[in-house]
Design a protein around this nucleic acid. Sequence first.
DNA 1: TTGAAAGCGCTAACAC
DNA 2: GTGTTAGCGCTTTCAA
Lengths: 350, 350
Amino acid sequence: MKVTIAEVASRAGVGVATVSRVLNGSPAVSETTRRRVRAVIDELGYEPSAAARALSTGRTRTVGVVTPFFTQPSAVERLRGVSRAISEGGYQLILFDLAQPDRFARLPVGGRIDGLLCVSMCPSESDLARLRTAGIAVALVDFEHPELPSVAIDDTAGGRLAVEHLLELGHRRIAFVGDDEESPWAFQSSARRRVGAAAAVAEAGGRLIVRRGPHDREHARSLAARLLALDDPPTAIFAGSDLQAVGVLEAADAASVDVPGDLSVIGFDDVDLARYVGLTTVAQPLESSGAQGARLLMEAMGGAPRRTCRLDLRLVRRSTTASRGKSPGTRNQMAAAGSRRGFIARMASA
Amino acid sequence: MKVTIAEVASRAGVGVATVSRVLNGSPAVSETTRRRVRAVIDELGYEPSAAARALSTGRTRTVGVVTPFFTQPSAVERLRGVSRAISEGGYQLILFDLAQPDRFARLPVGGRIDGLLCVSMCPSESDLARLRTAGIAVALVDFEHPELPSVAIDDTAGGRLAVEHLLELGHRRIAFVGDDEESPWAFQSSARRRVGAAAAVAEAGGRLIVRRGPHDREHARSLAARLLALDDPPTAIFAGSDLQAVGVLEAADAASVDVPGDLSVIGFDDVDLARYVGLTTVAQPLESSGAQGARLLMEAMGGAPRRTCRLDLRLVRRSTTASRGKSPGTRNQMAAAGSRRGFIARMASA
DNA sequence: TTGAAAGCGCTAACAC
DNA sequence: GTGTTAGCGCTTTCAA
């Protein structure tokens, strides 16, 4: 049934080594032999077994990618870059979907991959030790570790950037809606954004109101709803991610709070969705973070010394933030506000 | 460096076969031996090599997934279902990103996977033959083939559904903006949607205006822009996918054409984005199509006979379609129109 | 209940 | 240039 190298060799009247040489492009094969072997390979539709190759060479030419919830918008954008860089490097990509954090320890990586790219997470020290003894290189995207190559952003500075924008607009009662910090996933990025934001608010003589919950739109919405129901509600909300920011916008809409007239909202990441809804946000280069991470990993597999890099952040002003107290003024702002409300209304009813 | 089964065996004072038995949960091992072996495994952090296992057993416990452009919104939603079902089935998932169609023939699948799930595409007959001789099962999602298990929708009926909605609203000049049908990708789905749409229009005594191009927002936008610049422009546009529908909305906005007042737009798929922008569309169950496809594939790998299934379609009315000629009437419609315009404007400027 | 040994399909010395 | 052969790390008879 399955065609093997031996079959090819005998049909071509040569030894298996010769076939192997042809397969691997060794120059030490005469042109005639090469042609004959090639012909038999095509005729039989022969394809070398990756498993046998891996066992023999000790390399798989494959890298693994793990990320919690790879279907999250920001993860998808990162994967786009990863995929591109990986295939440019001549590797295969195997995607491990981590449904539960504790399942990491059971990832069957042995003999499957030469390197592992962890996106928005980091294996435990014991898992790292296992990976090391297995000879598997590791690199991190959107996470940092003292001994591993990584590409990340300065989340603390990002949090500060977001809040400084709000402060400049005159806001003083500012809230943060971010991730649960006790969850096993421990998205450190949200925590650091919060820290940067809190510091900036404190320097302005205020105090950041903090609300945390699971990372999704629904929880962000209910957290925001409660904030808006406060006696003295915030005039601006910084959401730990764009996804959560959309939840905040939904809450504002449900409570008939005008954005940006009565409430400014700023997100983080600048996923495609942020553009669609006109969300002001802190942009980080998602796709290139993935590509860059993949490159660092391939370097590491090649034995290069550890390298890390930090990507730049920038503020993207759209239509969900405005000066404090400024009554719903210009026509543009009116239009934007109306528009936003319409969008959310439709979303809720859908 | 790398821990092998032999190492474990000698440290535990047993033969490799015994370690193998422990690894595979064979009952024919005494409790004491089992415990001793387990202890050594943990101590050494041993993990069996998937490559060696695969070579020995001939199975990899891994399925591959190919799809053109896996970062497209609809593909991502399908992958979500695939990933879930695959891991429920105890398999690993390896994602092949097909940047160029002609690269399919070079996918190194031999000895890597037991089954291949093709999403929105189908391998050529010769590739299928190769896969067959390699003993790799194949299943299709969003595609059909007389000999392969598949899960798909009735695209022709879907196209009809979309257009009938427009006809009911009184539209007679209807255009279709879809995919290039000559591209090597040959997204048959777009072609079939067009056929269904054309038939419905013909039955109503009209003729569908057809415009085709590469599958992305930008091309859809420029095709729509040209349609709207016609002397006698269509009053409704059916886009082959939600992504393309968004491009159409952008074009309408740029041309100051009111949606749905002067132009109705309907999409296809119902990706998350459609909800966000309030797009009327034909919904297909994306995530469950992936899950179902994965299940069919696993059945096939288990030797079960071919099964196919068709998923249901339904019309989702949102705010981009309205009755022909009805002047921008109710407050709701005004708001929706204004809102949509705002959204597009922000998107363009971002 | 256990161990020895024969493959699985390939690569890489090493001889010729 | 080309063939022979010894592994790579595991599973799986077959004996004990």
